[in-house]
């Protein structure tokens, strides 16, 4: 009985809004495997991890903001500005690596803080706030580069994106990027289990109720933007290391990150979704792009696939939500169905 029940629960989770992404991810990996088994050789897999890492980190940051009921459109331009600025400041000198990384983290947090305070205290919709920030940061990139970026990243800086711990048995090289993802992912999961994480979801679900319950809504949302700014900084460090410096770094990444988060079943408008599912969403997007490369689908058609996927994913998730009005799968309340409906349905 109990094992059958567990199996049924697992099945229900897998077809639910935030579980479906794992199914899709497994399916895509299966197709990749069927198509080209050498993808799963450690070296290739680790290369994939390095390539995917920046988006995964960005998705974590975007998740915090989206689950709190806001948007952050500035992350793509923030990644670009950080990389260009780092190259300019480091200028190839090894000794400046750590001070500049520290400065980048401070800068990322400051951008998040400004986004958050303008959104919460001045009551400007976050789509406008972060759009304004995007304009400012794009302007900064243009000012700093004047068309072509100057300076260079130090080898010490690029280590995080492109190197790893060598001579690890079985897999050869353990990329720093993988360790960073695991660390960021673990920290995010712990954070979402802490009281801060629960408050964040509560604010996204119902701002008023959270306020009445004693939450300082403005502060929680601002913190989410700061986390997003920090994650964009980490993503910038990784992408700068992996791909190097161009003035196009980060272009359009904000929409890919939002796609990834939404694909993970996180609901725009806030209050629903898991951070692991958001990471899985980012992994799905990256593996899909890998699959396209393998099938030699022209890269120009990628946006079409991306567009179809997000529409289908969100339509699927919202169908799921409207169906939940009938008995909720949650085992908690043993009361009559009608009662639990009222208690659990949001609308």
């Amino acid at each position: 009985m109990s094992s059958a029940r567990k199996l049924a629960d697992a099945g229900r989770f897998l077809i639910s809004g935030s579980g479906a992404v794992y199914l899709v991810l497994i399916a895509i990996f299966a197709i990749i495997f069927a198509n080209n088994a050498s993808f799963f050789e450690p070296a290739n897999l680790m290369l994939f991890v390095k390539k995917a890492a920046p988006l995964l980190i960005l998705a974590v940051g975007q998740y915090f903001v989206i689950v709190a009921g806001e948007f952050d459109l500035s992350v793509g331009s923030l990644v670009g500005a950080q990389v260009v600025l780092a190259a300019l400041l480091i200028d190839g000198q090894e000794s400046r690596t750590w001070p500049v990384i520290l400065l980048m983290l401070l800068g990322g947090a400051a951008v998040g803080l400004v986004n958050g305070l303008i959104t919460t205290l001045l009551k400007v919709p976050s789509i406008i706030t972060t759009l304004g920030m995007m304009l400012v940061l794009f302007g900064a990139i243009r000012l700093l580069t004047g068309g072509a970026p100057t300076g260079a990243l130090s080898e010490g800086f690029r280590v995080f994106g492109r190197r790893g711990i060598d001579d690890v048995p079985l897999i050869g090289q353990l990329p720093w990027a993988l360790l960073i993802i695991v660390a960021v992912g673990a920290a995010a999961v712990l954070l979402m289990r802490s009281s801060f994480g629960r408050t964040l979801v509560a604010v996204g679900d119902n701002e008023k109720a959270a306020g009445f319950a004693g939450t300082r809504v403005w502060w929680v949302r601002t913190a989410a933007f700061v986390l997003s700014g920090l994650s964009a900084t980490v993503a910038g460090i990784l992408v700068g290391g992996f791909a190097g410096v161009t003035s196009q770094v980060g272009d359009g990444m904000e929409f890919v990150a939002i796609t990834a988060v939404v694909l993970g079943g996180v609901v725009l408008g806030g209050g629903r979704g898991a951070v692991l599912a958001a990471i899985a969403g980012a992994l799905t997007v990256e593996s899909l792009f890998t699959l396209f490369t393998q099938l030699s689908v022209p890269s120009t058609i990628r946006p079409t696939a991306q567009g179809l996927i997000i529409i289908v994913a969100v339509a699927y998730a919202s169908r799921e939500r409207s169906r939940r009005h009938t008995p909720h799968p949650s085992p908690k309340p043993p009361e009559p169905n009608r009662h639990s409906d009222v208690a659990l349905s949001k609308e």
Binding site: F71, F255, I258, P303, Q306, G307, I311, V314, A315, S322
Partner: peptide, 19 residues
């Protein structure tokens, strides 16, 4: 389909972009 307008129009835009 009850898709958030942001995602729906971003999606159709991306579909057109690919084309």
């Amino acid at each position: 389909l009850k898709v958030n307008a942001f995602i729906a129009t971003l999606g159709t835009g991306l579909i057109l972009k690919g084309w």
